[in-house]
Design a protein around this nucleic acid. Structure first.
Lengths: 119, 119
DNA sequence: TGATTGAGCAACCAAAAAGTTGCATTTAAT
DNA sequence: ATTAAATGCAACTTTTTGGTTGCTCAATCA
């Protein structure tokens, strides 16, 4: 396989789509993920500012996002910064595209069948 | 607004993306949804055949998918058939594209800044 | 008619998730 | 040296979730 590991087999576990969607399936996490999508790294304290819950709760959400591979963290000084991570997101997108594509194909076949029928 | 209600405001609640992703965030539901993406309507009994759980459990999963707007059900005879529903899926896709697009934009800006810097 | 099949409903159960509090630890600022 | 800020960790509580069993009801089929 090429050096740029398109398939995530190199990441250890096979792409667990359900885990990715589950990580996005919470309003708080979705908001955090959306906020991080501008590429800026942010500390837990900053990310906890506008959330109406404890810093520890936000920390847990960040852990969920991180184990799902949607964000990454690195410590700088005394604070740990979280950054957007696009790889798994691309996987999720690909899966949705695949499903939507299958639906479109089915619809197309149905349509051509109907035309066939009316001929 | 046009007759073909592109925005889901007509569906009552505003598009709850977290709910959509949460519905997809379970392997069983993901498998069911994937299976239904061929456009074929299937009864609960049929969908329960290859699942290693009770029919009632599958029913619950179908309810979750339905309240998220990912599938629709209609009764025919004594059985209720579930069909794929592409609208919310399109919403989810759009959201992911939006986030990915923002990331790409940020990356691009960062790159041009770096080029600027080395000049 | 009588048996069977597909499904709905309610109660119940165990495990996971979401969130909290309290305390310890490390890093930075004064 | 002290203090304050940012976080990590563990225990605990409350909801939610995923799943089960038992019973009932409606629609077929023999």
């Amino acid at each position: 396989m090429s050096k740029t590991e398109t398939r995530l087999s190199g990441a250890g576990k096979d792409p667990d789509f359900a885990e990715i969607f589950a990580a996005l399936g919470d309003p708080t996490r979705l908001a955090i993920f959306d906020r991080l999508s501008d590429g800026q790294a942010r500390s837990i304290a900053v990310l906890s500012d506008d959330a109406d819950m404890t810093r520890q709760a936000v920390t847990k959400h960040l852990h969920v996002l991180e184990t799902a591979g949607l964000v990454e963290s690195h410590k700088v000084g005394r604070e740990s910064r979280y950054v957007f991570c696009p790889d798994r997101l691309a996987l999720a997108r690909a899966w949705l595209e695949h499903v939507a594509g299958r639906w479109d194909f089915a619809l197309m076949r149905l349509k051509s069948f109907a035309e066939d029928d009316s001929r």
